[in-house]
Amino acid sequence: MSTTSIEHETPLRVAVVVGSVREGRQGRAVADWFVATAAGHDGLDLDVIDLADLDLPLVMPGWGGAPSPEAAAALADVTPRLAAADAFVVVTPEYNHSFPASLKNLIDWHHGEWQAKPVGFVSYGGLAGGVRAVEHLRPVFAELHAVTVRDAVSLHGPWSGLGEDGAPRDTAVCEGAAKGMLGQLDWWGRTLRTARATHPYQG
């Protein structure tokens, strides 16, 4: 069996990052809905990384410096999981036309873990559905040499658009959007995984 065939048959490891840590957030419920929806997409191995479960320091070391012992302990859990992922899905709200500081903090603590991997988005928040947060995230990930997929899942007005269980009320539209985004993420994830295995990325 060729290397390409093996890479295609191996499940795609997808890290689902829950970006909000606010009290009373909808983020974890939205992530749980997405994971349940993604379970119907064959060939995915999903790992939920909830930033509310981490204690990442806000202050990073100077250029070339080592993280503090507290930071190193926090990174010891999340960094290997990001490194092992073939692709990412970021679940983010929109705060003041952008994304949460907690999410930017996680992103900035890492670099090579994002490189040459695809990123999809599930956003929520008000009438805009979090789309402005996603538009701000795209150039951030481009700077880190990641590839953001075109289609995203946008949940509009979560306080009225989501049920008590966190599932969107308009399930047909939202599940269709998730299916489209996952299809693109799967293609890019497998293509880039094969490319990294055969020709390491030079960022």
Rank of each mutant, 00 (worst) to 15 (best):
G65N: 05
V59D: 11
I107K: 03
W63D: 11
G27Q: 04
P100D: 13
N96T: 14
V119R: 11
F121G: 08
R81P: 02
S68R: 00
P69M: 00
W114E: 04
P80R: 03
G27K: 10
F121T: 07
L103Y: 00
Y124P: 12
G125H: 09
A87C: 00
P139Q: 02
P61Q: 05
L51R: 06
A52T: 03
S98N: 14
T92Q: 13
I49F: 02
L58N: 11
Q115T: 12
V90P: 12
V48Q: 05
S123F: 01
H97T: 13
L46V: 06
L51C: 10
E135S: 13
A66R: 08
L56F: 03
K117C: 05
G40S: 13
A52E: 12
D42Y: 05
D42C: 01
L58M: 15
A71Y: 06
A85W: 10
K117S: 09
A74Q: 04
R22D: 11
R132P: 03
L46P: 05
P93N: 13
D47E: 15
G120C: 05
S102G: 09
L44P: 01
N96R: 14
L137V: 04
Y124Q: 11
D42T: 12
G130I: 05
N96K: 12
A101F: 07
A76W: 04
G43I: 05
Q115P: 01
P80V: 04
D55L: 01
P67W: 03
Q26L: 15
G64C: 06
V89Y: 08
R25W: 10
V78W: 04
L54K: 05
A84T: 00
L56W: 10
V78A: 08
L44W: 07
P67F: 09
G64N: 00
I49Y: 01
G62W: 06
Q115H: 15
A74W: 09
R25K: 14
L44K: 10
D45C: 03
R138Y: 06
P57H: 01
A128Y: 10
E135I: 02
N105H: 03
G129Y: 00
V90K: 09
D86R: 07
G43P: 00
A128M: 11
L106G: 09
A74V: 08
G19C: 04
D45H: 13
V59C: 03
K117G: 08
S123R: 09
E23S: 14
W109S: 07
R132M: 13
G126H: 04
L58K: 10
L51K: 07
V90I: 15
P80W: 09
D86Q: 09
R138I: 11
A116L: 03
A52Y: 08
E113S: 14
